[in-house]
Design a protein around this nucleic acid. Structure first.
Length: 457
DNA sequence: TCTGGGGTCCTAGGACCC
DNA sequence: TCTGGGGTCCTAGGACCC
Protein backbone atom coordinates (compact mmCIF):
# COMPACT_ATOMS: atom_id res chain seq x y z
CA UNK A 1 0.00 0.00 0.00
CA UNK A 2 1.32 3.39 -0.91
CA UNK A 3 1.43 6.11 1.68
CA UNK A 4 0.47 8.84 -0.80
CA UNK A 5 -2.29 9.36 -3.37
CA UNK A 6 0.25 8.82 -6.13
CA UNK A 7 -1.75 6.70 -8.60
CA UNK A 8 -3.73 8.67 -11.16
CA UNK A 9 -6.46 7.18 -13.32
CA UNK A 10 -7.60 9.20 -16.30
CA UNK A 11 -10.73 8.39 -18.28
CA UNK A 12 -11.88 10.40 -21.30
CA UNK A 13 -15.60 11.15 -21.10
CA UNK A 14 -17.91 9.42 -23.61
CA UNK A 15 -14.80 9.26 -25.75
CA UNK A 16 -15.94 8.10 -29.21
CA UNK A 17 -19.08 10.25 -29.09
CA UNK A 18 -17.10 13.25 -27.84
CA UNK A 19 -14.68 12.99 -30.77
CA UNK A 20 -17.65 12.93 -33.17
CA UNK A 21 -19.17 16.00 -31.54
CA UNK A 22 -15.84 17.76 -31.66
CA UNK A 23 -15.43 17.07 -35.40
CA UNK A 24 -19.06 17.61 -36.42
CA UNK A 25 -20.44 20.81 -34.90
CA UNK A 26 -24.04 19.95 -35.79
CA UNK A 27 -23.86 17.07 -33.32
CA UNK A 28 -22.93 19.22 -30.35
CA UNK A 29 -25.57 19.23 -27.65
CA UNK A 30 -27.40 16.43 -29.41
CA UNK A 31 -27.64 12.71 -28.58
CA UNK A 32 -24.95 10.74 -30.41
CA UNK A 33 -24.51 6.98 -30.38
CA UNK A 34 -21.36 5.34 -31.75
CA UNK A 35 -21.34 1.63 -32.42
CA UNK A 36 -22.64 -1.00 -34.79
CA UNK A 37 -25.49 0.46 -36.83
CA UNK A 38 -26.62 -2.79 -38.43
CA UNK A 39 -29.27 -5.19 -37.22
CA UNK A 40 -26.88 -6.88 -34.83
CA UNK A 41 -24.95 -3.84 -33.71
CA UNK A 42 -24.32 -2.77 -30.13
CA UNK A 43 -23.58 0.62 -28.61
CA UNK A 44 -19.90 1.35 -28.03
CA UNK A 45 -20.39 4.86 -26.61
CA UNK A 46 -23.39 7.09 -26.02
CA UNK A 47 -23.00 10.83 -25.54
CA UNK A 48 -24.35 12.23 -22.28
CA UNK A 49 -27.35 13.63 -24.18
CA UNK A 50 -28.18 10.07 -25.31
CA UNK A 51 -27.62 8.64 -21.82
CA UNK A 52 -30.48 10.81 -20.57
CA UNK A 53 -32.76 8.56 -22.61
CA UNK A 54 -31.31 5.43 -21.05
CA UNK A 55 -28.91 4.54 -23.85
CA UNK A 56 -25.88 2.65 -22.46
CA UNK A 57 -22.73 0.99 -23.71
CA UNK A 58 -23.13 -2.66 -24.74
CA UNK A 59 -26.88 -2.22 -25.30
CA UNK A 60 -28.12 -3.43 -28.68
CA UNK A 61 -28.48 -0.59 -31.16
CA UNK A 62 -32.02 -1.74 -31.79
CA UNK A 63 -32.88 -1.07 -28.16
CA UNK A 64 -31.06 2.26 -28.26
CA UNK A 65 -33.08 3.33 -31.30
CA UNK A 66 -36.26 2.49 -29.48
CA UNK A 67 -35.22 4.63 -26.50
CA UNK A 68 -33.76 7.51 -28.49
CA UNK A 69 -34.85 7.45 -32.14
CA UNK A 70 -33.67 10.99 -32.86
CA UNK A 71 -30.03 10.36 -31.91
CA UNK A 72 -27.34 10.33 -34.60
CA UNK A 73 -26.18 6.72 -35.03
CA UNK A 74 -22.59 6.55 -36.21
CA UNK A 75 -20.09 3.78 -36.91
CA UNK A 76 -16.68 4.35 -35.40
CA UNK A 77 -13.92 6.41 -37.06
CA UNK A 78 -11.03 4.66 -35.40
CA UNK A 79 -8.33 6.74 -37.10
CA UNK A 80 -9.72 9.77 -35.36
CA UNK A 81 -10.04 8.06 -31.98
CA UNK A 82 -6.53 6.66 -32.18
CA UNK A 83 -5.13 10.07 -33.11
CA UNK A 84 -6.86 11.73 -30.15
CA UNK A 85 -5.75 8.92 -27.84
CA UNK A 86 -2.13 9.29 -28.92
CA UNK A 87 -2.22 12.99 -28.08
CA UNK A 88 -3.50 12.22 -24.59
CA UNK A 89 -1.09 9.35 -23.91
CA UNK A 90 1.73 11.56 -25.16
CA UNK A 91 0.81 14.23 -22.62
CA UNK A 92 0.74 11.67 -19.82
CA UNK A 93 4.16 10.35 -20.82
CA UNK A 94 5.57 13.88 -20.74
CA UNK A 95 4.87 13.85 -17.02
CA UNK A 96 5.82 10.31 -15.99
CA UNK A 97 7.58 7.34 -17.61
CA UNK A 98 5.12 5.06 -15.84
CA UNK A 99 1.96 5.29 -17.97
CA UNK A 100 -0.22 2.20 -18.43
CA UNK A 101 -2.91 2.58 -21.10
CA UNK A 102 -5.91 0.32 -20.51
CA UNK A 103 -7.64 1.20 -23.76
CA UNK A 104 -7.82 4.16 -26.15
CA UNK A 105 -9.57 6.28 -23.54
CA UNK A 106 -8.10 5.21 -20.20
CA UNK A 107 -4.74 5.07 -18.47
CA UNK A 108 -3.00 4.84 -15.12
CA UNK A 109 -0.09 7.15 -14.32
CA UNK A 110 2.30 6.58 -11.43
CA UNK A 111 3.06 10.00 -9.99
CA UNK A 112 5.86 8.63 -7.84
CA UNK A 113 7.97 8.96 -11.00
CA UNK A 114 6.48 12.27 -12.17
CA UNK A 115 8.18 15.66 -12.19
CA UNK A 116 6.64 16.76 -8.88
CA UNK A 117 8.31 18.28 -5.80
CA UNK A 118 6.41 15.93 -3.49
CA UNK A 119 3.30 13.74 -3.37
CA UNK A 120 1.27 15.73 -0.85
CA UNK A 121 -2.46 16.05 -1.54
CA UNK A 122 -2.29 19.70 -2.61
CA UNK A 123 0.54 18.98 -4.99
CA UNK A 124 -1.04 16.01 -6.76
CA UNK A 125 -4.45 17.71 -6.86
CA UNK A 126 -3.02 20.79 -8.53
CA UNK A 127 -1.13 18.60 -10.95
CA UNK A 128 -4.29 16.68 -11.88
CA UNK A 129 -6.21 19.90 -12.52
CA UNK A 130 -3.49 21.22 -14.82
CA UNK A 131 -3.33 17.84 -16.57
CA UNK A 132 -7.06 17.91 -17.28
CA UNK A 133 -6.77 21.38 -18.77
CA UNK A 134 -3.81 20.33 -20.86
CA UNK A 135 -5.76 17.36 -22.25
CA UNK A 136 -8.74 19.60 -22.98
CA UNK A 137 -6.64 22.17 -24.84
CA UNK A 138 -4.50 19.69 -26.79
CA UNK A 139 -7.43 17.60 -28.03
CA UNK A 140 -9.69 20.40 -29.16
CA UNK A 141 -12.01 20.24 -26.18
CA UNK A 142 -12.23 16.64 -24.97
CA UNK A 143 -12.85 16.34 -21.26
CA UNK A 144 -11.32 13.81 -18.91
CA UNK A 145 -12.33 12.54 -15.50
CA UNK A 146 -9.52 11.80 -13.09
CA UNK A 147 -9.18 9.81 -9.89
CA UNK A 148 -6.23 10.07 -7.52
CA UNK A 149 -5.60 7.53 -4.79
CA UNK A 150 -3.06 5.26 -3.18
CA UNK A 151 -3.82 2.32 -5.50
CA UNK A 152 -5.01 1.48 -8.99
CA UNK A 153 -8.27 0.09 -7.68
CA UNK A 154 -9.29 3.14 -5.68
CA UNK A 155 -8.03 5.59 -8.32
CA UNK A 156 -10.24 3.88 -10.89
CA UNK A 157 -13.25 3.92 -8.62
CA UNK A 158 -12.59 7.58 -7.88
CA UNK A 159 -12.37 8.68 -11.53
CA UNK A 160 -15.90 7.38 -12.00
CA UNK A 161 -17.46 9.31 -9.12
CA UNK A 162 -17.71 12.75 -10.66
CA UNK A 163 -18.07 12.06 -14.38
CA UNK A 164 -17.99 13.85 -16.71
CA UNK A 165 -15.18 16.35 -16.39
CA UNK A 166 -14.51 15.63 -12.72
CA UNK A 167 -11.62 15.13 -10.33
CA UNK A 168 -11.85 13.05 -7.17
CA UNK A 169 -8.97 12.67 -4.74
CA UNK A 170 -9.12 9.98 -2.07
CA UNK A 171 -6.82 10.88 0.83
CA UNK A 172 -4.73 7.91 2.01
CA UNK A 173 -6.36 6.29 5.01
CA UNK A 174 -9.91 7.11 3.90
CA UNK A 175 -10.21 4.43 1.22
CA UNK A 176 -12.48 2.12 3.18
CA UNK A 177 -14.77 4.93 4.28
CA UNK A 178 -15.39 5.53 0.59
CA UNK A 179 -15.70 1.91 -0.47
CA UNK A 180 -17.69 0.26 2.33
CA UNK A 181 -21.12 1.73 1.46
CA UNK A 182 -20.70 1.11 -2.29
CA UNK A 183 -22.23 -1.76 -4.26
CA UNK A 184 -19.80 -4.68 -4.80
CA UNK A 185 -20.20 -4.15 -8.52
CA UNK A 186 -17.87 -1.12 -8.29
CA UNK A 187 -15.02 -3.57 -7.94
CA UNK A 188 -13.44 -4.26 -11.31
CA UNK A 189 -13.81 -7.97 -11.92
CA UNK A 190 -17.26 -8.21 -10.39
CA UNK A 191 -19.49 -8.72 -13.40
CA UNK A 192 -22.97 -10.22 -13.71
CA UNK A 193 -21.97 -13.81 -12.85
CA UNK A 194 -19.92 -12.88 -9.77
CA UNK A 195 -22.56 -10.40 -8.67
CA UNK A 196 -25.14 -13.16 -8.80
CA UNK A 197 -23.05 -15.54 -6.70
CA UNK A 198 -22.29 -12.85 -4.16
CA UNK A 199 -25.93 -11.81 -3.94
CA UNK A 200 -26.86 -15.38 -3.13
CA UNK A 201 -24.45 -15.36 -0.20
CA UNK A 202 -26.04 -12.14 1.03
CA UNK A 203 -23.41 -9.71 -0.23
CA UNK A 204 -24.53 -6.40 -1.72
CA UNK A 205 -22.01 -3.83 -0.54
CA UNK A 206 -18.27 -3.76 -0.13
CA UNK A 207 -18.86 -3.77 3.64
CA UNK A 208 -20.80 -7.05 3.25
CA UNK A 209 -17.95 -8.49 1.20
CA UNK A 210 -15.42 -7.46 3.82
CA UNK A 211 -17.20 -9.68 6.36
CA UNK A 212 -16.58 -12.89 4.37
CA UNK A 213 -13.48 -14.91 5.14
CA UNK A 214 -10.93 -15.67 2.45
CA UNK A 215 -11.80 -19.38 2.59
CA UNK A 216 -15.44 -18.63 2.07
CA UNK A 217 -14.74 -16.39 -0.91
CA UNK A 218 -12.42 -18.97 -2.45
CA UNK A 219 -15.14 -21.57 -2.08
CA UNK A 220 -17.69 -19.37 -3.83
CA UNK A 221 -15.50 -17.81 -6.52
CA UNK A 222 -12.39 -19.98 -6.91
CA UNK A 223 -8.78 -19.42 -5.90
CA UNK A 224 -7.69 -16.43 -7.92
CA UNK A 225 -10.90 -14.48 -7.90
CA UNK A 226 -11.66 -15.28 -4.25
CA UNK A 227 -8.28 -14.18 -2.94
CA UNK A 228 -8.29 -11.13 -5.18
CA UNK A 229 -11.68 -9.93 -3.96
CA UNK A 230 -10.78 -10.63 -0.36
CA UNK A 231 -7.93 -8.17 -0.71
CA UNK A 232 -9.81 -5.55 -2.73
CA UNK A 233 -12.64 -5.55 -0.18
CA UNK A 234 -10.03 -4.28 2.28
CA UNK A 235 -8.60 -1.79 -0.24
CA UNK A 236 -5.42 -3.85 -0.28
CA UNK A 237 -3.93 -3.31 -3.72
CA UNK A 238 -0.24 -2.82 -4.34
CA UNK A 239 -0.27 -3.61 -8.06
CA UNK A 240 2.34 -1.58 -9.93
CA UNK A 241 1.61 0.68 -12.88
CA UNK A 242 3.03 -1.35 -15.78
CA UNK A 243 4.01 0.69 -18.81
CA UNK A 244 4.92 -2.23 -21.10
CA UNK A 245 2.42 -5.03 -21.45
CA UNK A 246 3.15 -7.58 -24.12
CA UNK A 247 0.51 -8.75 -26.55
CA UNK A 248 -0.72 -12.27 -25.83
CA UNK A 249 -2.99 -12.88 -28.81
CA UNK A 250 -4.22 -11.36 -32.06
CA UNK A 251 -7.65 -12.07 -33.47
CA UNK A 252 -10.24 -10.99 -36.03
CA UNK A 253 -13.91 -11.84 -35.82
CA UNK A 254 -17.13 -10.81 -37.45
CA UNK A 255 -20.84 -11.06 -36.80
CA UNK A 256 -23.00 -11.28 -39.90
CA UNK A 257 -26.30 -9.53 -40.49
CA UNK A 258 -27.90 -12.87 -41.25
CA UNK A 259 -26.65 -16.29 -40.18
CA UNK A 260 -24.19 -17.93 -42.55
CA UNK A 261 -25.27 -21.42 -43.54
CA UNK A 262 -23.09 -22.17 -46.57
CA UNK A 263 -19.91 -24.07 -45.62
CA UNK A 264 -18.01 -22.67 -48.59
CA UNK A 265 -18.85 -19.13 -47.51
CA UNK A 266 -17.73 -19.98 -43.97
CA UNK A 267 -14.43 -21.31 -45.30
CA UNK A 268 -13.93 -18.19 -47.41
CA UNK A 269 -14.62 -15.93 -44.42
CA UNK A 270 -12.19 -17.83 -42.21
CA UNK A 271 -9.45 -17.71 -44.85
CA UNK A 272 -9.89 -13.97 -45.20
CA UNK A 273 -9.80 -13.49 -41.42
CA UNK A 274 -6.65 -15.62 -41.25
CA UNK A 275 -5.01 -13.23 -43.74
CA UNK A 276 -6.05 -10.24 -41.67
CA UNK A 277 -4.59 -11.81 -38.53
CA UNK A 278 -1.38 -12.71 -40.37
CA UNK A 279 -1.07 -9.15 -41.63
CA UNK A 280 -1.42 -7.75 -38.12
CA UNK A 281 1.04 -10.26 -36.70
CA UNK A 282 3.60 -9.43 -39.35
CA UNK A 283 3.20 -5.68 -39.01
CA UNK A 284 3.94 -6.01 -35.29
CA UNK A 285 6.86 -8.39 -35.78
CA UNK A 286 4.97 -11.21 -34.09
CA UNK A 287 4.19 -14.83 -34.83
CA UNK A 288 2.34 -17.48 -32.88
CA UNK A 289 1.95 -21.23 -32.48
CA UNK A 290 -1.71 -21.70 -31.56
CA UNK A 291 -4.48 -21.05 -34.07
CA UNK A 292 -8.00 -20.76 -32.66
CA UNK A 293 -11.24 -20.82 -34.60
CA UNK A 294 -14.28 -19.28 -32.94
CA UNK A 295 -17.84 -19.99 -34.01
CA UNK A 296 -21.02 -18.54 -32.56
CA UNK A 297 -24.10 -20.51 -33.57
CA UNK A 298 -27.48 -19.07 -34.44
CA UNK A 299 -28.56 -19.61 -30.80
CA UNK A 300 -25.52 -17.73 -29.43
CA UNK A 301 -23.71 -20.80 -28.13
CA UNK A 302 -20.03 -20.21 -28.69
CA UNK A 303 -17.54 -22.89 -29.63
CA UNK A 304 -13.78 -22.73 -30.03
CA UNK A 305 -11.35 -25.19 -31.56
CA UNK A 306 -7.62 -24.70 -31.44
CA UNK A 307 -4.52 -26.33 -32.79
CA UNK A 308 -0.91 -25.78 -31.75
CA UNK A 309 1.73 -25.90 -34.47
CA UNK A 310 5.33 -27.09 -34.10
CA UNK A 311 6.66 -23.58 -34.46
CA UNK A 312 5.39 -20.00 -34.56
CA UNK A 313 4.07 -18.59 -37.82
CA UNK A 314 2.74 -15.38 -39.33
CA UNK A 315 1.97 -17.07 -42.66
CA UNK A 316 -1.56 -16.39 -43.94
CA UNK A 317 -1.60 -19.73 -45.78
CA UNK A 318 -0.63 -21.76 -42.71
CA UNK A 319 -3.07 -19.94 -40.45
CA UNK A 320 -5.83 -20.13 -43.05
CA UNK A 321 -5.43 -23.86 -43.71
CA UNK A 322 -5.33 -24.58 -39.98
CA UNK A 323 -8.45 -22.55 -39.34
CA UNK A 324 -10.26 -24.21 -42.23
CA UNK A 325 -9.33 -27.64 -40.89
CA UNK A 326 -10.67 -26.66 -37.46
CA UNK A 327 -13.90 -25.60 -39.15
CA UNK A 328 -14.36 -29.13 -40.49
CA UNK A 329 -14.33 -30.44 -36.90
CA UNK A 330 -17.45 -28.45 -36.13
CA UNK A 331 -21.03 -28.95 -37.11
CA UNK A 332 -22.47 -25.52 -37.76
CA UNK A 333 -25.77 -26.87 -39.00
CA UNK A 334 -28.46 -24.29 -38.48
CA UNK A 335 -26.09 -21.47 -39.31
CA UNK A 336 -23.52 -19.31 -37.57
CA UNK A 337 -23.83 -15.66 -36.59
CA UNK A 338 -20.12 -15.16 -35.88
CA UNK A 339 -16.82 -16.53 -37.14
CA UNK A 340 -13.39 -15.60 -35.89
CA UNK A 341 -9.72 -16.56 -36.17
CA UNK A 342 -7.07 -15.88 -33.55
CA UNK A 343 -3.42 -16.67 -32.96
CA UNK A 344 -1.87 -16.97 -29.50
CA UNK A 345 1.29 -18.41 -28.00
CA UNK A 346 3.09 -15.43 -29.47
CA UNK A 347 6.81 -15.06 -30.00
CA UNK A 348 8.53 -11.94 -31.26
CA UNK A 349 10.31 -13.91 -33.95
CA UNK A 350 9.37 -15.99 -36.97
CA UNK A 351 10.87 -19.39 -37.69
CA UNK A 352 12.23 -18.27 -41.06
CA UNK A 353 14.53 -15.83 -39.34
CA UNK A 354 16.69 -18.76 -38.31
CA UNK A 355 17.89 -18.70 -41.89
CA UNK A 356 18.84 -15.05 -41.78
CA UNK A 357 16.91 -11.87 -42.40
CA UNK A 358 14.58 -11.81 -45.35
CA UNK A 359 16.37 -9.74 -47.98
CA UNK A 360 13.45 -8.87 -50.19
CA UNK A 361 10.64 -8.70 -47.65
CA UNK A 362 7.44 -9.02 -49.61
CA UNK A 363 4.53 -6.67 -49.64
CA UNK A 364 1.58 -7.74 -47.54
CA UNK A 365 -0.28 -10.18 -49.82
CA UNK A 366 -3.71 -9.27 -51.14
CA UNK A 367 -6.59 -10.09 -48.89
CA UNK A 368 -8.98 -12.68 -50.25
CA UNK A 369 -12.29 -11.13 -51.27
CA UNK A 370 -15.00 -10.54 -48.68
CA UNK A 371 -17.59 -13.23 -49.40
CA UNK A 372 -20.31 -11.46 -47.42
CA UNK A 373 -19.90 -7.78 -48.29
CA UNK A 374 -19.68 -8.61 -51.98
CA UNK A 375 -23.32 -9.58 -52.01
CA UNK A 376 -24.93 -6.42 -50.69
CA UNK A 377 -25.77 -3.14 -52.41
CA UNK A 378 -24.08 -0.21 -50.62
CA UNK A 379 -20.87 0.29 -48.71
CA UNK A 380 -21.88 3.51 -47.06
CA UNK A 381 -22.30 3.54 -43.33
CA UNK A 382 -23.59 6.36 -41.17
CA UNK A 383 -20.70 8.43 -39.92
CA UNK A 384 -18.50 7.77 -42.94
CA UNK A 385 -16.97 10.88 -44.51
CA UNK A 386 -17.80 11.62 -48.14
CA UNK A 387 -16.57 13.88 -50.90
CA UNK A 388 -18.72 16.48 -52.55
CA UNK A 389 -17.95 19.18 -55.11
CA UNK A 390 -19.78 22.28 -54.00
CA UNK A 391 -21.26 21.37 -50.65
CA UNK A 392 -17.94 20.99 -48.88
CA UNK A 393 -17.20 18.21 -46.47
CA UNK A 394 -20.00 15.92 -45.44
CA UNK A 395 -20.73 12.75 -43.59
CA UNK A 396 -23.23 9.99 -44.10
CA UNK A 397 -26.38 10.42 -42.04
CA UNK A 398 -28.32 7.48 -43.40
CA UNK A 399 -27.72 4.91 -46.13
CA UNK A 400 -29.69 2.16 -47.75
CA UNK A 401 -31.75 1.05 -50.72
CA UNK A 402 -29.52 2.83 -53.16
CA UNK A 403 -29.81 6.23 -51.51
CA UNK A 404 -27.28 7.92 -49.27
CA UNK A 405 -28.22 10.88 -47.10
CA UNK A 406 -25.39 13.27 -46.37
CA UNK A 407 -25.23 16.03 -43.79
CA UNK A 408 -22.79 18.81 -44.58
CA UNK A 409 -20.77 20.97 -42.25
CA UNK A 410 -20.00 24.57 -43.01
CA UNK A 411 -18.22 26.88 -40.63
CA UNK A 412 -20.95 29.49 -40.94
CA UNK A 413 -24.04 27.37 -40.68
CA UNK A 414 -23.76 24.40 -38.40
CA UNK A 415 -25.88 22.30 -38.51
CA UNK A 416 -25.40 22.20 -42.25
CA UNK A 417 -27.77 21.11 -44.99
CA UNK A 418 -28.84 17.53 -45.62
CA UNK A 419 -28.94 16.12 -49.16
CA UNK A 420 -29.64 12.72 -50.62
CA UNK A 421 -27.65 11.08 -53.41
CA UNK A 422 -27.90 7.88 -55.35
CA UNK A 423 -25.16 5.40 -54.36
CA UNK A 424 -23.40 5.62 -57.70
CA UNK A 425 -23.09 9.41 -57.59
CA UNK A 426 -19.36 10.13 -58.02
CA UNK A 427 -19.62 12.94 -55.46
CA UNK A 428 -20.00 10.26 -52.81
CA UNK A 429 -16.55 8.74 -53.00
CA UNK A 430 -15.78 8.31 -49.37
CA UNK A 431 -12.56 9.03 -47.60
CA UNK A 432 -11.26 8.68 -44.10
CA UNK A 433 -8.87 11.36 -42.86
CA UNK A 434 -5.45 10.08 -41.85
CA UNK A 435 -4.42 10.54 -38.23
CA UNK A 436 -3.17 14.04 -37.65
CA UNK A 437 -4.29 15.22 -41.07
CA UNK A 438 -6.60 18.17 -41.12
CA UNK A 439 -9.89 17.08 -42.57
CA UNK A 440 -9.65 19.71 -45.28
CA UNK A 441 -6.33 18.35 -46.57
CA UNK A 442 -8.01 15.58 -48.45
CA UNK A 443 -6.14 12.46 -49.41
CA UNK A 444 -6.88 10.87 -52.79
CA UNK A 445 -10.35 9.42 -52.71
CA UNK A 446 -10.36 5.67 -52.30
CA UNK A 447 -12.03 3.37 -54.77
CA UNK A 448 -15.74 3.11 -54.74
CA UNK A 449 -16.55 1.11 -51.61
CA UNK A 450 -17.64 -2.47 -51.56
CA UNK A 451 -21.38 -2.58 -51.43
CA UNK A 452 -23.22 -3.45 -48.25
CA UNK A 453 -26.84 -3.27 -47.21
CA UNK A 454 -28.00 -0.63 -44.78
CA UNK A 455 -31.32 0.30 -43.40
CA UNK A 456 -31.83 4.01 -43.82
CA UNK A 457 -32.50 6.09 -40.76
C1' DT B 1 -34.18 -9.18 -35.69
C1' DC B 2 -32.02 -9.36 -28.37
C1' DT B 3 -26.81 -9.86 -27.38
C1' DG B 4 -19.80 -6.13 -31.26
C1' DG B 5 -14.89 -6.69 -31.37
C1' DG B 6 -10.52 -6.96 -29.35
C1' DG B 7 -8.46 -8.40 -25.71
C1' DT B 8 -6.92 -10.67 -20.67
C1' DC B 9 -7.07 -14.05 -17.09
C1' DC B 10 -8.72 -18.30 -14.88
C1' DT B 11 -10.29 -23.21 -14.44
C1' DA B 12 -10.43 -27.99 -15.25
C1' DG B 13 -9.33 -32.28 -17.36
C1' DG B 14 -6.22 -35.23 -19.92
C1' DA B 15 -1.59 -36.35 -21.71
C1' DC B 16 2.89 -36.93 -20.62
C1' DC B 17 7.13 -36.95 -17.95
C1' DC B 18 10.05 -37.78 -13.96
C1' DT C 1 -1.58 -54.65 -7.54
C1' DC C 2 -4.39 -51.85 -6.31
C1' DT C 3 -3.94 -46.97 -8.51
C1' DG C 4 1.80 -41.62 -5.56
C1' DG C 5 2.65 -36.98 -6.58
C1' DG C 6 4.18 -32.76 -8.97
C1' DG C 7 4.98 -30.04 -13.06
C1' DT C 8 4.07 -28.63 -17.76
C1' DC C 9 1.60 -28.42 -22.01
C1' DC C 10 -2.61 -28.48 -24.53
C1' DT C 11 -7.56 -27.79 -25.19
C1' DA C 12 -12.29 -25.84 -24.28
C1' DG C 13 -15.02 -22.86 -22.05
C1' DG C 14 -16.30 -18.90 -19.23
C1' DA C 15 -16.02 -14.36 -16.91
C1' DC C 16 -14.73 -9.92 -17.46
C1' DC C 17 -13.05 -5.33 -19.30
C1' DC C 18 -13.37 -1.21 -22.48
Amino acid sequence: MRTHASVLHLDLDAFFAAVEQRDKPSLRGRPVVVGGVGGRGVVATASYEARKYGVRSAMSTREARALCPHAAYLTGRFHAYRAASEIVMGILREHSPLVEPLSLDEAFVDLARADLPDLELDTVTGFAERLREQVHDATGGLTASVGLASSKFVAKVASDLDKPDGLVVVPPGTELDLLRPMQVSVIPGVGPATLDRLRRTGVRTVADLERLSEDELVRVLGQAHGRGLHRLARAQDDRAVEPERETKSVSVEGTYETDVTDRDVMAAIVVRQASQVARRLASNGLSGRTVTLKVRLYDFTTLTRSSTLDGPTDDPGVIGRTARRLLTELDPAGGVRLLGVGVSGLADWVQDELFGPDEDAEEAPELPPDPVGAKSPTGYRPGMDVEHDEMGRGWVWGAGRGVVTVRFETAETPPGPVRSYSVDDPALRHWEPEPGLDKLDRPEPTDHPEPEEHPGD
